[in-house]
């Protein structure tokens, strides 16, 4: 059971929920950038939700299925195509052996997720299958996927979906979808943030501009961090800070005053002052911002940040139940215990 990489594209890696518990050793978390799209991708093929998937960035990636496969594509719309036919997203799709899936160009968003029934089968390193590019560990041989790679798939899927063969098409998609609201992956986004630990150290004008003006995503943004450009954020008085633990969504401001939002491949410690922290619910949105996107920040209370997260999780739980139900209905897999 495997997939063959036909074209490596800009950047494609194997990722899961990331490496937890190794931060004290200086080991980055890694894992998927957009946890929302990732979980849906897994649920839509009947996986538990924490299986390894492919994270495909921007454009040019192509993969061939070396056997029949149930897959799902979520996240950014990178114009997926199979033999010239547009492939729908956010739903289960059955691909016939030998068919080739191409991610042509970005229509909206930045990162697509390709899940497969059973998950990508690479060895766990420190409890995770995520690729940690900088350290060269995890994922597929510790590196980004290259043209010609054969990526193994977990052989024993939790159950078998019936095959959907048809004479005229290389794939068959179900008619329903779990597509999110149309605002998903939009390039102008309002990010909700709470105050960072050194918020008070910034000048009042800097704080005002941070919340009133727009910031643009720079091309140097990557899995480590999103670099922004906009009105410089200056401190009341320059100061040396002692490095301390950071997390996904931490907004650090180096000496040039241009903020950086830390993401999945961030280092464990950061030594720059932290002006704000992106609410957990909004981090998947950051992950889908292509360079040139414009963003604004809105302050919310820590309580509100928690409430938004818990509310979203309640909705996700409902969504999972609905997806499970539709899958069961679709495939009549009544004996599947998780459903």
């Amino acid at each position: 059971m495997s997939l063959e990489v036909m074209k490596k594209g800009l950047l494609a890696t194997v990722q899961d929920t990331g490496r937890k518990g190794y931060g004290k050793f200086g080991i980055s978390c890694s894992g998927v950038m957009d946890t929302y799209a990732y979980r849906l991708a897994n649920w839509l093929v009947g996986n538990k939700g924490d299986e390894a998937v492919l994270e495909i960035t921007w454009s040019g990636f192509a993969v061939r299925f070396l056997q029949d496969a149930w897959v799902s594509i979520t996240g950014a719309d990178l114009a997926p195509e199979c033999e010239g036919i547009s492939v729908p997203m956010w739903r289960p799709i059955f691909f016939l052996e030998g068919s080739e899936l191409v991610f042509k160009y970005p229509r909206s968003g930045c990162r697509s997720y390709l899940s497969i029934l059973g998950g990508i089968d690479v060895p766990e390193v420190m409890g995770s299958r995520s690729t940690y590019l900088r350290a060269g560990i995890g994922g597929f041989n510790g590196r980004a996927l290259q043209t010609g790679d054969t990526i193994p798939i977990v052989k024993k899927a939790p159950y078998d979906f019936p095959k959907r063969r048809s004479d005229d098409r290389p794939f068959r998609a179900v008619l329903w979808s779990a597509a999110p609201a149309s605002t998903y992956g939009r390039a102008d986004t309002l990010l909700r943030v709470t105050r960072g630990r050194q918020y008070e150290d910034f000048r009042n004008e800097a704080i005002e501009r941070f919340f009133d003006d727009e910031y643009m995503v720079k091309a140097e943004s990557d899995r480590m961090g999103y670099r922004l450009s906009g009105p410089p954020l200056t401190l009341e008085s320059p100061k040396e800070y002692i490095s301390e633990g950071v997390t996904a969504g931490t907004i650090q401001v180096p000496a040039d005053g241009q903020p950086i939002i830390l993401m999945a491949d961030r280092q464990t410690l950061g030594g720059y002052p932290k002006i704000a922290q992106v609410a957990s619910v909004d981090i998947p949105w950051v992950a889908q911002l292509p360079p040139g996107s414009r963003i604004r920040f809105q302050e919310i209370s820590p309580y509100e940040s928690e409430r938004l997260f818990l509310e979203q999780e309640r909705k996700m739980k409902l969504l999972k139940r609905m997806i499970d139900y539709r899958i069961k209905e679709e495939f009549n897999a009544a004996d599947r215990p998780e459903l």
Partner: peptide
């Protein structure tokens, strides 16, 4: 509890809200 990361003068404690 998820993990904690010690630094020079601080300890950051990570938890799972759910």
């Amino acid at each position: 509890y998820v993990e904690c990361i010690p630094s020079f003068t601080t300890l950051t404690v990570y938890y799972d809200l759910l």
